[in-house]
Design a protein around this nucleic acid. Structure first.
Length: 203
DNA sequence: CCGGCGATGGTCT
DNA sequence: GACCATCGCCGGC
């Protein structure tokens, strides 16, 4: 029996709220001839749409960005540096055009490798899940979709936050805003942690 | 362990 | 024609 997808109302909220709420949720990836792959989200970034100078939606509904101006709960996938894909969940419809970038996850089931960091980074995540622009626009709230999102049976994780990664081109206002959220104690988080635990001296 | 850099192609001006 | 929400290799310490 498949887990029940999160409803559209989950995604139809402020993008920052959706981003935080996605931590600990499960991504279910189903493709013909491949076992179902399941991953638990541990790192995300909120992109606030038209006004956000770091967002692809900042120039309005261009061909690439127009999916973010549509209904929430759909998938936005783009190609970066000519070789990697990144996946986003559309969070808020209409003019706001919010989206949440999924930056890292923990493998739960269905992966060929045992590497616990194989999903640690937005490009690595899409590569391991086989997600490309071909999946762009799919409905994340249907159990029949090639990709959907569901609750996990787990307590709410401890959450930390920081500035977003790789957006130095955005103005001073936006590049410092703490719109990256991650599970504080997960080893699968990519990039820097706010307070890196120091290795205790070993005897 | 850390910083620098190149790969590679779509998107928008 | 410039830019880019990345990754992993390579060399220096």
């Amino acid at each position: 029996v498949k887990p029940t997808p999160l409803p559209r109302s989950f995604f139809s909220r402020d993008t920052e709220i959706v981003a935080r709420a996605l931590l600990g949720k499960l991504i279910l990836r189903q493709a013909p001839g491949v076992p179902v792959r399941i991953a638990r989200i541990v790192e995300v970034e909120a992109y606030l749409g038209l006004l956000d100078l770091a967002s692809h939606a900042r120039r309005g509904p261009t061909p690439r960005a127009k999916i973010m101006f549509g209904p929430p709960g759909h998938l936005y996938v783009y190609l970066i540096y000519g070789m990697y894909h990144c996946m986003n969940f559309v969070a808020k419809a209409g003019v706001e055009a919010g989206a949440v970038l999924i930056r890292a996850a923990e493998p739960v089931a269905g992966f060929a490798s045992a590497d616990h960091r194989q999903l640690s980074g937005p490009g690595k995540l899409c590569r391991a899940l086989g997600v490309t622009r071909a999946e762009g626009g799919v409905d994340l709230t249907s159990a029949d979709s090639p990709l959907y999102v569901a609750r996990d049976r787990a307590r709410a994780p401890r959450i930390a936050r920081s500035a977003r990664i790789g957006i130095d081109y955005a103005g001073d206002d936006w590049k410092h805003r703490e719109l990256r959220f991650y599970v504080a104690d997960s080893a699968a988080v990519s990039g820097p942690r706010r307070a890196r635990p120091r290795t205790p001296a070993t005897s």
